[in-house]
Amino acid sequence: MSLAPVAPKVSVRPFERCDVTEVLSLMRELAVYERYIDQFRVTESDIIENGLSAFPHFGVFVAEMDGDIIGIAVHYEVPWTYDLKPVLVLKELFVSKHARALGAGRALLNQIEKHALEINASRTVWTILKDNDAAKQFYVKAGGQKDAVWELWGIEHSKK
Rank of each mutant, 00 (worst) to 15 (best):
A134I: 05
I37T: 07
Q145S: 12
V87G: 15
S53H: 02
V6G: 03
E77L: 15
P56C: 11
A121F: 05
E29S: 03
F138K: 14
W150I: 00
F58G: 07
F55R: 13
A101M: 08
S96M: 02
M1W: 05
Y139R: 14
F55L: 08
G143M: 13
S11A: 04
K136T: 11
V74E: 06
V6N: 02
C18M: 04
I70E: 03
M1K: 08
E151M: 12
V42P: 01
V95E: 04
E16N: 11
M65Y: 02
L30P: 09
T43H: 11
G67Y: 06
V62D: 02
V89T: 11
K160G: 10
N120K: 03
R17W: 10
L117F: 05
L108P: 10
N120F: 01
L152C: 10
Y36Q: 10
G105E: 14
M65E: 05
L84I: 00
I155H: 13
K91D: 15
D66H: 08
A63S: 05
L102K: 04
R35A: 12
R17Y: 10
E22W: 00
K97W: 05
I155E: 11
V12R: 03
D68F: 02
R35C: 07
I119F: 05
I70P: 00
K146G: 08
D68S: 01
A135M: 13
Q39K: 12
Q145K: 12
P56G: 13
S53G: 14
D131Y: 06
H75A: 08
Q111C: 12
V20P: 00
E151Q: 14
G59H: 13
V20M: 02
R123W: 01
L88Q: 12
R100N: 10
P14F: 03
L84K: 00
S25W: 00
G67W: 04
D133C: 03
N120P: 02
T124S: 08
V62W: 04
P79I: 01
I128G: 04
P8I: 10
E34V: 10
Y76N: 06
L84C: 01
W80Q: 00
V42G: 04
M27P: 01
Q145D: 01
F58W: 00
P86G: 10
F138I: 15
G143T: 13
V12F: 04
I112K: 07
E44L: 06
V12A: 09
F40Q: 09
G59V: 12
Y36V: 12
D133M: 02
I70V: 09
D147S: 13
K136F: 04
